[in-house]
Design a protein around this nucleic acid. Structure first.
Length: 665
DNA sequence: TATGTCCTTTTTTTT
DNA sequence: AAAGGACATA
């Protein structure tokens, strides 16, 4: 079977087009993944490209894994060895591991997670509370994603707060460098910096890369766009696939302007729109279209479908949030029984992770199996962070955050006061905590009782670091865990259930690492360097599992389900309380659009009359986005709301709506 | 000085 | 519910 069969004319053109830069504007459910995977296979099998010369960039590790698997199927044995499919961040990491020396980093640099970077920033800014800290982190991250240096930030700073933040930005970068560490933003920013000033490195990578495919292009940020340009050279050997209506990551620095910029920067840019939807019934599509119509759009497109009209969209009003979860569980049970479907045909989507808890409880009570996606990642778990701290420290002794974490968990007599003293001494000597622990100068300032565990810990790490390059990773890991008596410590400090779960996670992680070490013949240090960006739980036989999917709207992007329940369609949730106007409201609307367009056959929207927030009850009103769907498409059901407050809220909404309509005319 | 316990407070989305 | 802070204990 040809790689060009079973494609519509637009899809086929997008697959075949190789004359220059290409932008595929792919509406929801229009088969964009199919275009990308076919194109990769087409390039390799029909055009004779070396797989190593092709790179495809996706938005999540999971999407990358799936895409790689699909290309493998298409190639039917023809080897796709050497093909790169990964996230922008993983691509940046690969480049940096290779080229670290050119940037003044050692190749075993660490990659810090959000918790570590926030801790560093907290030290620097002395931010009074968590909110301020988050804001500071966001501002600096935005600067980095827009490729603004600390110097430039200082110059463009508009007010005193920003000037202070620019100073903090500089200190933050200096600290990272001292630790031989990078944050997520650096993984994009530094390759750009490298390619901008090092022509030799740039040309080497450009020559290697004959074609770059970028998925979810609408969610790229300034730095990612620049990296893409630098990698594909002046000819623009790329295929970018995106949908401006599904841009939902502006808060993370993604810039929809990148879509316009592409046409400006590449005059030869070819644009192919995909407008036929193969996913959803017409009612669902009409609802989606009528919601997104309220946004100003760059590329107006009208998505259409040949699939049947479908059922009306259900709107279910519930008494409160607990009742909402129970209702959803009940309706899934009933629907499954009635239509003889599988649990995996259902997804419950919501705005915030915290909403998941009630759904988990209700589904468990109803004996409905579920899988949670999004939410806390495997690598955010305390026990995994502990273990990776050891690994990081073994690979890179300059990594102070890793030193602090490893030295204090499990507890071994090193406490805050000792660390404080050690930190002071290290700062004076301009060296790492690890180095400082061995300095004789420290001994005069510290009691032997404090010094002893410090030295012992240092020696322990030293021994492991010495053996790490030569010995099998699996054995070293087992030894490490035995030496720190991690399992024992877990059972001492946690209740049995939690300890068991945590030790299970650790074992899984160690097994996975050991296997990987054997397969790829990699040392512990090399393994550590790739671990930071992976997510184990994602993709772990999730596909075969017959379970209802619980997911945030963000994590649901790119997925589809026969039956979708969109929960908490309320003001202050969707749209979120902090996103009530302007471009932020538009992004919330796109989020609603993404949610609706996940559904193939049926869509249910739920909202509550009240919900528990913190300690007390808050009255909720239905989302304004509900009003944007033609009421002929909707069927209201569930409990009639009889609370006076909710009815009052409804009246207020109507009055507001009328006022807005009047104002618009 | 280190660590465990009990209390408070608090929730957007993620590579 | 989970994380951070204040206090008590070893």
């Amino acid at each position: 079977m040809s790689l060009l069969s079973n494609l519509n004319p637009q899809q086929r053109e997008a697959v075949k087009y190789l004359d220059g830069p290409l932008l595929v504007l792919a509406g929801a459910g229009s088969g964009k993944t199919r275009v990308i995977t076919r194109k990769i296979a087409f390039l390799i099998a029909d055009c004779g490209y070396d797989p190593r010369a092709i790179t495809a960039v996706t938005f999540t590790n999971k999407a990358a894994r799936e895409m790689k698997a699909r290309v493998g199927e298409l190639l039917e044995g023809k080897t796709g060895q050497g093909l790169t499919v990964c996230t922008f961040h993983a691509l940046g990491l690969t480049i940096l591991r290779r080229e670290a020396k050119r940037l003044g980093y050692k190749p075993s640099f660490s990659v810090l997670d959000a918790a570590d970077t926030q801790a560093i920033l907290s030290e620097i800014t002395k931010a009074p509370d968590k909110g301020t800290l988050r804001q500071a982190a966001a501002v600096i991250s935005n600067w980095k994603n827009a490729l603004i240096t600390p110097d430039q930030a200082q110059q463009v700073a508009a007010d005193e707060t920003e000037r202070q933040l620019a100073v903090a930005y500089r200190a933050y970068q200096d600290t990272l460098r001292a630790y031989q560490a990078m944050d997520f933003d650096d993984l994009i920013r530094l390759p750009v910096e490298l390619f901008r000033c090092d022509a030799e490195a740039r040309e080497a990578w450009q020559n290697r890369m004959r074609h770059l495919l970028v998925d979810e292009y609408q969610d790229t940020n300034g730095a990612q766009y620049e990296l893409m340009k630098l990698l594909t050279g002046p000819l623009g050997r790329f295929t970018a696939v995106g949908d401006d209506d599904q841009a939902i990551y502006a808060w993370r620095g993604a810039d929809i302007e990148n879509l316009k910029r592409l046409a400006e920067d590449y005059s030869r840019l070819k644009i192919i729109p995909l407008t036929q939807n193969y996913r959803s019934c017409q009612r669902i599509l009409r609802a989606a279209n009528s919601v997104i119509r309220n946004n100003p759009r760059v590329h107006e497109k009208n998505l259409w479908s040949e699939l049947g009209i479908g059922d009306p969209i259900q709107v279910v009003r519930c008494k409160d949030d607990r009742n909402e979860a129970e209702t959803i569980a009940m309706r899934i049970s009933a629907h499954k029984f009635e239509h003889r479907t599988r649990f995996a045909d259902y997804a419950v989507l919501y705005r915030g992770n915290h909403q998941a808890r009630l759904f988990e409880e209700a589904l468990r009570a109803a004996k409905i199996p579920y899988v949670l996606s999004g939410g806390q990642s495997f690598f955010d778990r305390a026990e995994i962070k502990d273990l990776t701290a050891y690994l990081r420290l073994i690979a890179n002794q300059d990594d102070d955050p890793a030193f602090i974490r490893a030295a204090t968990s499990p507890k071994r007599g090193i406490g805050p006061t000792t660390l404080e003293k050690l930190g002071q001494y290290a700062a004076e000597r301009h060296c790492s905590l690890f180095e400082a622990a061995f300095e004789t100068g420290l001994q005069s300032r510290m009691a032997a009782k404090q010094l002893e565990p410090l030295i012992e810990f240092g020696n322990f790490i030293n021994r492991l670091a010495f053996r790490a390059p030569k010995e099998p990773a699996g054995r070293l890991l087992q030894e490490l865990l035995a030496a720190i008596r991690y399992e024992e410590w877990l059972y001492d400090t946690e209740d049995e259930r939690a300890a068991k779960a945590k030790w299970g996670n650790v074992s899984e992680f160690v097994d996975w690492l050991s296997k990987k070490g054997e397969e790829d013949e990699k040392s512990l240090i090399e393994l550590t360097q790739t671990v930071s960006l992976m997510n184990l739980l994602e993709g772990r036989d999730e596909a075969e599992l017959d379970a209802v999917r619980l997911s945030t709207l963000h994590a649901a992007k790119g997925l589809e389900f026969p039956h979708v329940i969109l929960a908490g369609v309320e003001e202050d949730i969707l749209p979120h309380r902090e996103c009530q106007e302007g471009s932020r409201l538009e992004e919330e609307r796109r989020l609603m659009y993404v949610g609706i367009t996940r559904a193939q056959k049926s869509l249910t929207l739920t909202c509550c009359g009240k919900r528990k927030k913190g300690g007390d009850w808050v009255v909720c009103e239905p989302s304004r986005f509900l009003d944007e769907i033609d009421s002929a498409e909707l069927r209201h059901s569930g409990q009639e709301d009889d609370s006076a407050a909710a009815r009052e809220a409804g009246r207020n909404r109507l009055a507001n709506l009328k006022a807005m309509l009047a104002a618009n005319k």
